[in-house]
């Protein structure tokens, strides 16, 4: 069923006029060139930071010779490692939960008519349009009110008192990520052919089976795009996070922001390079496994 969707529209299918053929060739080349240039644009600064992670100078913008010492000192730098760990934990948890909740929200908004739908539709954009610093300040006030109420209610004080920290950071990241995931998944749902679902149901599949077998595979690209967005937003968020975190709850962006007064430490370049390498390895690794399994299942 899903295979039918992506029948490749090879050029041979259609009688082609000569001008169209030229247009097609030209178009394909332009597309490829655009992609190459865009990737170059995206990776130019990345290349710079990778190179600088091996530069034997703390401040200078010149090449002073190759060194691995930043990687060595990174392993000693507890605060950067700690912040990296915090960032990854928050990003993965908030992405996982926000992707589920955001997709659910998107389904509700696109598949149901209910009272207050339009109002909620607008409210869903609030996390996206609210300037970060405003979100940060207002959440700080909000958490301070609720947490002090809770502390009073349960008579907590000193070390046992509830305060802002990684938990509030994660809760906040989930909140804005839900909005982003929902918006992206809805894009997919809007272009969605309901006829496929109806066909499945006509064939006797119940709602759940229809969802799992038909809807989910079809909106998977949207969910993936949403999840990637969410992960990126969470990993990179500085302003809001600064306001809603607490003792020991610094994330990587906060750590980095503190370092730029003197210089972006080459250790930060080193940690970025390691994260890049792991991400790329992850992608390539899963591709390789996929290919191998693909070969096996073909046999």
């Amino acid at each position: 069923m899903t295979a039918a969707r992506r029948t490749p529209s090879t050029d041979a299918d259609v009688p082609i006029q000569r001008s169209d053929a030229r247009f097609l060739r030209w178009g394909k080349r332009t597309l490829g060139l655009n992609a190459v240039l865009a990737l170059f644009f995206l990776y130019a600064p990345i290349l710079v930071l990778v190179i600088f992670s091996f530069n034997d100078s703390k401040l200078a913008a010149r090449w002073e010779g190759f060194t691995l010492r930043w990687y060595g000192s990174l392993l000693q730098n507890e605060s950067i490692l700690h912040a990296t760990r915090n960032s990854l934990v928050v990003a993965l948890i908030s992405t996982a939960l926000a992707t589920v909740f955001g997709t659910m929200t998107a389904l509700a908004m696109e598949r149901f008519r209910f009272r207050g739908r339009r109002v909620y539709d607008g409210l869903l954009y609030l996390p996206i349009i609210n300037p970060e610093i405003v979100t940060g300040v207002s959440l700080l006030a909000f958490f301070s009110l609720t947490l002090s109420a809770l502390n009073q209610a349960f008579n907590l004080s000193g070390d046992s008192a509830l305060r802002t920290g990684l938990v509030t950071v994660t809760l906040t990241h989930i909140a804005f990520n839900i909005a982003f995931v929902a918006v992206v998944v809805r894009t997919t749902l809007k272009n969605f052919r309901r006829s496929l679902e109806e066909a499945a149901q006509d064939l006797g599949a119940n709602e759940w089976v229809t969802f799992r077998r038909v809807t989910l595979p079809l909106i998977a690209p949207g969910i993936l795009a949403g999840a990637l967005l969410a992960f990126t937003l969470s990993l990179d968020n500085f302003v809001i996070t600064f306001f809603v975190t607490g003792p020991g709850g610094a994330t990587l962006p906060i750590e980095v922001f503190g370092l730029i007064r003197r210089a972006i430490s080459p250790e930060i370049n080193a940690v970025s390079t390691i994260m890049l390498t792991i991400s790329v390895a992850l992608i390539v690794g899963s591709q390789v496994i996929m290919r191998r399994r693909g070969v096996m299942s073909d046999e």
Binding site: P45, I46, L235, V256
Partner: peptide
């Protein structure tokens, strides 16, 4: 993934680059 991975480095680091 190639398009999004650069953004898993740090925003400030990229801007400084």
């Amino acid at each position: 993934f190639l398009i999004i991975i650069p953004f898993w480095t740090n925003f400030l680091v990229r801007t400084y680059a």
